[in-house]
Design a protein around this nucleic acid. Sequence first.
DNA 1: CTTTACACGTGTAAATATAACACTTATTAA
DNA 2: TTAATAAGTGTTATATTTACACGTGTAAAG
Lengths: 229, 229
Amino acid sequence: MLNSYTKEDKVMLAIDCIIFGFDEEGLKILLIKRDFEPERGKWSLIGGFLKVNETLDEAASRILYTLTGVHDIYMEQFYTYSEIDRDPVERTLSVSYYALIDIERHNEELIENYNASWHSIAEVPKLIFDHDKMLDKGLKRLRRRTSIVPIGFNLLPEKFTMLQLQKLYEAILDKPLDKRNFINKINSMDILIKLNEKDMSSSTKGSFLYMFDGEKYNAKLTDNFYLKL
Amino acid sequence: MLNSYTKEDKVMLAIDCIIFGFDEEGLKILLIKRDFEPERGKWSLIGGFLKVNETLDEAASRILYTLTGVHDIYMEQFYTYSEIDRDPVERTLSVSYYALIDIERHNEELIENYNASWHSIAEVPKLIFDHDKMLDKGLKRLRRRTSIVPIGFNLLPEKFTMLQLQKLYEAILDKPLDKRNFINKINSMDILIKLNEKDMSSSTKGSFLYMFDGEKYNAKLTDNFYLKL
DNA sequence: CTTTACACGTGTAAATATAACACTTATTAA
DNA sequence: TTAATAAGTGTTATATTTACACGTGTAAAG
């Protein structure tokens, strides 16, 4: 804004989204196999273009909804990519987001229609354009964020066991955690509700189910309160 | 990219830059007083528009050079703002950067020509548009980054005293630090070169000058090596 | 009915990291 | 020679993090 308003250049803005999910096998991302040129048949993050009358968050929500059939997905914008030739067809910048969803809670049919599928984070194929770079940065951001702020719950069903939660953190941080230390840490934060309900699928004894207590968490947000796992 | 390439909307992209500087008085930012509409006479971050043939980093560098006369300024992109009416004149998104410069090393004349001036971080006036929000987020990012990665040196002259470095960190983190603990921490990182040269301006005894050792630092980057101040 | 198998749940001690704290030293100017 | 001033330097106490092992409850098998 050093100059007055004159006709400035305009560009196309893509939104590309890393959709993270989690199951017994670990951390996964949702990719689509492109059925159009360029790069037909190659794997790609989920994306779309910004419309002139929506915000980036709205565009990201729209794109996420289109593919998953789910509203109100947790997401965070993390970087804007602008290499001149990043998209070989036309000058396009891309604002990247990552999103966290409960892997059970999405529309299978939509995913199939769009040629999408889940890939373990350790076995992600080569992606188009600069999507590899995006994934790298997004994953790093996710790691940093989850170890500070309890956003990981977005990857779990509403009710979960302590072991599930631990496995989730292990998958995200890509390192083993000590069971007792983990439980002590989580409990000391006092942001979980312990239910009078057990998951009996994993053992004869059964393991208690927990829920994330968003209200308690929000009440604590004033102090600089964080995890560090 | 769920759809094939058709005519997608295009938008104007601004780049807005928080230029941080540091002197005896503390942490400062460079602001310009707008001499054009809208918001004439109001304070604003330093900005400009992306040209179709440059990357965001190039645009940011260009804008920084225009105002300061300095090349190769340390900078980091941190968020892209997209509220529909953030700019009342025309639909414009803004990619925000922060930059760190040695406050002594810029072109006074240019700054005057552009109606720019330095403002202590504690006394920043109301800014135009969503620039307040940008500053808030940028400052938070700077705080987090400086306490992890030694980027603070970019705000100091090449040679500096320990006390200067401590004052810098105190200014960025906005909290007092213990002198001995600070020096021990910094020394334990082993990324400074102690010069055989003293700054005599502050005391009769004089205090040793140091330089940041970028090579040593880079060599250590492999391990997860960080400050935590 | 008893035993076995299995994962759940729990606490303490050692090691490490952080935080608190005060005096001696070098130099110049009075 | 003395006084004044900021520089430089280590140790102890506290807090945090890590390491580590066994009793418990339940269902299925015998």
